[in-house]
Design a protein around this nucleic acid. Structure first.
Lengths: 220, 220, 220, 220
DNA sequence: AATGAATGAGAATTCATTCAT
DNA sequence: CATGAATGAATTCTCATTCAT
């Protein structure tokens, strides 16, 4: 199984492919778009270039995506809704309350490990998400919605739970999040986008990241 | 003195104005460009719009900046070279060795405070820097150069110095930096770009940020 | 019997349906095309929209009509040939000479009444005819042919007949036609296209129209 | 003075040229657009063809008219507002009440003569107006506005005035207008658009048209 | 130095038509 | 017969850049 096949962008295409009866050409278009846009950014990528790389007529793109922006949305939205939020909200949070994670450290480890694998398998998609979010208010809005309705409440619950257990310092959740999130994100961005070619000892760095966070927010 | 006048973008304009004999029109162009590009991004900003906002003919822009990209470079480069690096490299690092900062905590406080004021006074410039860096390889290159030649060595020196004093855990500098930098950056980005309208108690948050870092990297 | 069923466009479809073995789909296509084109005009109507409204695949349209313009011709030609000219040439003119109409006023009444009912039952078709004739030279040509070969000679005969009876002023037929035709057409267009929602007393207005014409062209 | 120079489309260009500082190229664009659109219709005319005929780069069109439809509006609107309505409302109506026209027949003659000259000098513009009005709701709206606010009230006044003098039959103005207007329009359309190449005795036909109308609406 | 009209290379988009299934 | 995905030529429109004044 190649790395490509593990990727959630593979899954994404497969999923959509099943559920919405995607054509082969449509899949090619998505693949090509993701590749080029992640390399050069949305505004430096022309639909004609995408068509060429996908081996498709330019008109075919617009049969499947009404506008170029729709194509971008089709790429980014699943990253936000289908993978980002659910994983957080459902899988992990439920587990917390089923006592699967005996400590917040356990939880953090599972979470970061999971996000790490996700990022690893989806570098281009993550890159697109990070780069384009700033310029497309409509996509921003859908992100904010998902964050406000799903992610944020879930994190809140988890933090409150572990605060109740005396494992987390009594800082506002707001503050806790703004301390933890950049640490995790910063690690992933450095690891996969800024310095992907460095010789990373991934497990060690994950451990260090967790230790850094735990010292910062843990009690005692 | 208005906030605008404190801003480094004011300083930048003044500086350039003196040194390179900027005309009023040229200043207007820079101001307009910074405003609009920081709002909508480089690719969503047309030179005609900049000209209109600057109260200048479109041709005038190209009299001063050969291309639109040159104009962007003229905006970003000073942020990188004149302000970002020097402040770090010279002011702070020198001070460290003049024993001005008795502990790394002192140093961190001075540094974060300084960066905080810089960001506060230059929101649009910081925004442009963060947003556009990804899409312009030439600007990226100049950033990398500055970072590799000035910033990184300086930080290394500082970290080694405080390691020598036993104040910092014995982690690779690489790791230390990738833990600290996102924490500081994350704070500034949250504070000024993502949630600028929240009711921030800035001093408290700075203190918390330092404490978070210190616990994470400090020896016991 | 609904108004739709009385319409000549119903008849047209029925006729064609019988004679040329139209499939249900073909009928649906014609109906949809007439509806949309009469609303928005030929150039603002896409074949995909027609297909959608007709509940048919886009390709199906082209199985029945080689080109989009053929479809238009299929709509307009019958209006010209099967209904417009024949009604005039045969029904009325024959009647004239069978002394069915004792005066030109009688004739005019029968004619206008008939055209009125035709227009009433075929608003969309009349609209398409009037709107598109200007832009399609081929359709224009077929109209001119029918007019020159059938309509014009017939009208000439009728006018000459009543001139002979001393009921019509001795003006050139050319002039008589260019005075009468716009009056009738103007009435129908106002009645059905420009101000269809006014409260019309149709019989009264028809009477007035005839009186207007009769005073204008009648002797004494 | 060539016919072109007498035309109101010449005047139009001159007027706009003075008042709005039109470039030579802009004039060329208008001229070319009027020519081609009146020949082939708006939807059969591409901006590239207009540009070519005008001897101008395609982009230049869009410097002066934001969209192709704006260009059409720039052609049609003056025909409606600057020439159509004012001539009616001001010149003629005022004259009526200054007793300049001793009878409605005089008035009609002056009016038709004037419209005749206007049509003669502006065949392409009139053609465009008549052909395109049906397909552009926005332009329709501006026409309706002008008609409802200026033309219709003016006609009403005139008709009431001559009714008061016992010169016009006591029919509703609505009806009078829908009888007279098509007669005049029908004449002009036949004369200039449908059969311009016939050997017209214009003065005679105008006289006949007036007589036709006068018998139809006149008392006794 | 400044202007702003003009350019023209490209970009996104539309849509009638074809064709393999 | 019917489908509908695919095509690609044509079209409108954008915009950085040039240049005569």
């Amino acid at each position: 199984m190649s790395e490509k096949d593990q990727s959630i962008y593979r899954q994404m295409i497969d999923t959509l492919g099943e559920s919405e009866n995607m054509t082969q050409k449509q899949v090619k278009i998505l693949e090509a778009a993701i590749e080029i846009i992640s390399e050069k950014g949305y505004y430096n990528t022309s639909t004609s270039e995408i068509a060429k790389r996908a081996g498709v007529a330019e008109g075919t793109i617009f049969r499947h995506y009404r506008t170029k922006k729709d194509l971008l949305a089709a790429i980014i939205t699943p990253v936000i809704t289908d993978f980002s939020a659910p994983l957080f909200a459902e899988k992990f949070v439920d587990e917390v309350f089923r006592k699967s994670y005996t400590s917040i450290e356990d939880f953090l480890y599972a979470f970061i490990k999971n996000r790490f694998e996700f990022a690893k398998a989806n570098v281009p998609l993550v890159k697109i998400l990070l780069q384009e979010l700033a310029f497309h208010p409509d996509i921003q809005a859908s992100y904010k919605k998902v964050f406000a309705e799903k992610v944020y409440p879930a994190i809140n619950n988890v933090l409150d739970y572990y605060k109740g257990k005396g494992e987390v310092k009594d800082l506002p959740n707001q503050t806790l999040i703004r301390l933890m999130a950049p640490t995790v994100l910063g690690f992933l961005i450095t690891r996969f986008l800024l310095q992907p070619d460095l010789d990373w000892e991934d497990d060690l760095e994950i451990k260090r990241t967790i230790e850094f966070i735990m010292r910062g927010i843990g009690k005692v």
